[in-house]
């Protein structure tokens, strides 16, 4: 019966014209999405000379030398570990600090909760980029310009509004009875946090990590004003170097862009389902 209904509905939804139009549109737009990326990767294996002869042909003599040189010129051996430190450090920081605060907001009653929590929620819609200049001045004032700690603090701070919001809303759904019975058994709030809240909050921790990992790995505008020393730069800053005087050296530029793109593409291929879910949960917020 159900199957029958579905076929009638599907039958009427999809007149063959509508179906062909839908396929046509999907193929056109996915092609437009993938071709530039494919084009970039393909050309990263050409010498600049071959690129100038034809940009659309397959590489006749594929070469890895662009990668070797781009890796050296971009100091990627330094920047790659930096990006990992910033991404992992800030993501862990955001998740841990958000869950802590979320637990307090959701399960310990206090008159302070309302104003502070609302403060975080308001922060969700404040784009950190609009605070670029005062942040730059503040970091200089505190004497932490060109330090890793400044980058980590700023990244954690900008991730907190959404982190605290999602954590609090999630932890609210943990039954009070669980926490109360642990309290009666004499557990401290911290051991309840460790033994009950953290294990039960894994789904929201995963969502938060997924959202923040790609954001932080790709972040450019803020770190651009926080550090100027090469030893502290992240991958996007290194890639940006290839836009200026190096921009006519197409082979190396494309290799650098590919190096910048591949880690996140792999991350996406592995975690596509969670990323999609996380975006849907994180982007539509109040």
């Amino acid at each position: 019966m159900g199957e029958e209904i579905r076929t009638t509905v599907a039958g009427r939804v999809g007149s063959s014209i509508a179906r062909s139009a839908a396929y046509g549109m999907m193929i056109l737009f996915t092609g437009m999405t993938l071709y530039p990326i494919f084009w970039l990767i393909m050309n990263s294996f050409k010498s600049t000379k071959e690129f100038q002869v034809s940009q659309l042909a397959f590489p006749a003599e594929p070469t890895m030398s662009n990668y070797v040189e781009a890796w050296k010129m971009g100091d990627f051996a330094l920047l790659f570990p930096n990006s990992i430190v910033y991404t992992v450090g800030a993501t862990l920081g955001i998740v841990f600090v958000s869950l802590l605060a979320g637990f307090a907001f959701a399960k310990i009653s206090s008159r302070a909760t309302k104003p502070i929590y609302n403060g975080f929620v308001i922060g969700i819609l404040i784009t950190a980029q609009s605070l670029m200049i005062p942040l730059f001045l503040e970091v200089n004032l505190l004497g932490i310009y060109n330090t890793r700690i400044a980058v980590l603090l700023v990244y954690i701070g900008t991730g907190l509004p959404l982190g605290v919001y999602l954590s609090t809303e999630y932890i609210k759904s943990i039954p009070n009875a669980l926490i109360e019975s642990a309290r009666i058994d004499g557990a401290t709030f911290f051991s309840i946090f460790r033994k009950i809240v953290v294990p039960m909050s894994l789904p929201v921790a995963v969502t938060l990590s997924i959202l923040n990992i790609s954001n932080i790995w790709n972040e450019f505008a803020l770190i651009n004003i926080l550090v100027s020393r090469t030893e502290l730069k992240s991958l996007p800053l290194g890639i940006f170097k290839f836009s200026g005087s190096l921009s006519t050296d197409y082979g190396k530029q494309f290799a650098a862009l590919t190096i910048g793109m591949v880690p996140m593409l792999l991350f996406y291929i592995v975690f596509r389902k969670q990323i999609t879910k996380g975006v849907a949960a994180g982007a539509v917020k109040g």
Binding site: L40, F240, I275
Partner: peptide
């Protein structure tokens, strides 16, 4: 596939299209 461009660094996207 249609979500792929979101995951790539904006800097990469910007320089790619600039070219």
């Amino acid at each position: 596939v249609l979500y792929v461009p979101n995951i790539i660094s904006v800097i990469v996207v910007g320089l790619l299209w600039q070219t």
